[in-house]
Computed example of a mutant assay.
Amino acid sequence: MTDIATLPYRPCAGLMILNADGKVFVGQRIDAEVEAWQMPQGGIDAGEDAQTAAIRELGEETGIAPDKVELIAIAPDELFYDLPEELVGKVWKGKWRGQRQRWFLYRFLGSDADIDIATEHQEFKDWTWVEPHTLPDVIVAFKKPLYEQVLAAFAPHLR
């Protein structure tokens, strides 16, 4: 049995994507057992910086091309979340206790037609735009504090 406290956090990048109406992109994970939504996010590969990872994840998860977004803000600090104990051995081959994430706020410059979640390694089965303040209510419970921190970090840029 691994002592969870000794496991490192997985380095990740997260993206809050705002459309022209001030709503945020969320996707419903293909592998989710509950009806939960999340913003695009994923691991930072070796030798990759967080912003490069964010743009790569944007394409991999949403099909949105890099020229369809513009950077608005970067969260000033890394944000962390812990996996629930029952998931630690099941997710990421048991190598991580949770994630440490660098978050980026982007303005979406395209149209809904520029979004295609049927990517090569599809992660979402559905997507929608939601009001920012509803984010903590539509995600898995263990990420609620993280999403509240993301909202606080980007509050000056949200309506």
Score class of each variant (00 low, 15 high):
124 F>L: 09
27 G>L: 03
22 G>V: 08
110 G>Y: 06
20 A>K: 15
107 R>T: 05
48 E>Q: 15
19 N>K: 07
31 D>I: 05
137 D>T: 12
143 K>T: 15
45 D>I: 06
11 P>I: 02
50 A>Y: 10
68 K>E: 13
11 P>V: 00
122 Q>S: 07
105 L>K: 11
35 E>L: 02
149 Q>M: 14
104 F>G: 00
136 P>Q: 13
98 G>N: 07
107 R>G: 03
141 A>Q: 13
131 E>H: 05
99 Q>V: 07
26 V>N: 08
89 G>E: 06
12 C>I: 00
30 I>W: 13
48 E>V: 15
131 E>W: 02
123 E>D: 11
13 A>E: 03
149 Q>N: 11
132 P>C: 04
96 W>N: 14
110 G>L: 04
141 A>G: 06
17 I>Q: 00
108 F>P: 01
32 A>E: 09
115 I>T: 08
14 G>K: 10
19 N>W: 06
142 F>L: 01
60 E>D: 15
106 Y>A: 00
56 R>C: 04
77 D>A: 07
60 E>N: 13
92 W>I: 08
62 T>L: 13
104 F>A: 04
115 I>E: 03
117 I>N: 09
96 W>L: 09
66 P>H: 12
68 K>C: 12
32 A>T: 10
9 Y>M: 00
9 Y>L: 02
37 W>Q: 04
137 D>A: 10
58 L>V: 06
134 T>L: 11
105 L>W: 07
50 A>S: 15
61 E>N: 06
16 M>N: 03
140 V>D: 06
138 V>M: 10
36 A>N: 08
144 K>E: 14
10 R>A: 05
8 P>D: 01
91 V>F: 05
33 E>C: 00
131 E>T: 14
147 Y>P: 00
108 F>W: 04
35 E>N: 14
120 E>S: 07
87 L>A: 08
48 E>A: 06
31 D>P: 00
53 A>R: 14
114 D>H: 03
34 V>E: 13
87 L>C: 05
134 T>D: 15
3 D>N: 14
66 P>A: 15
